[in-house]
Amino acid sequence: MRAKWFIFILGITAILASPAISATEITGDYRHTGTIPQDDFVIYHINMTKPGKILDVTVTASDPVDFYLLTEKELSQYMFSDAFAYEDYSENTTTYHWRGTGDYYLVIDNANVSVSGAMSHGPVNYTIVAKLEDKGIYDTLVDSAAYLVCGTLIVIAAATTFWLYKKPKIEEVLK
């Protein structure tokens, strides 16, 4: 019994002590030029948890690399397992126009993690130009209108369903 507890606590300590994913934060206008060594990758964190954020990002690399736009869950799949899902993917110089709500991670990958992806032959120079901005008034209006229409439809559907399945009393029928 004591040995089990020891292993359990050792396991928890190992999880807590494991290095956190280090990612560079993209805020506002961001521009950076750097080098990714062979079989390495860089991660950028894009905080889009507040609704209404739009990300415009262009990455140019000196050699083919893999670009992934991942959610937090997909990132941990990418880091710790062979198979992983992704929101968006590109193999060459790429431009993303992304709108979503949540935490996203842009991975520039100069490692051979996937069979189909770009092959790593040496260090790669890259430039990232990104802009994270709030949604314009027009987009906000379109979104609000969409929510309003959906909400109204739900209310109408609920009312109609209630009406359809409610059996009128015989007294009402014979009025």
Partner: peptide, 18 residues
């Protein structure tokens, strides 16, 4: 015997218009 039938227009099987 008396019988009533209510009818509603549906979209994707969801009643929308009585």
């Amino acid at each position: 015997y008396l019988m009533l039938q209510k009818r509603a227009f549906t979209v994707f099987f969801i009643p929308l218009i009585p």
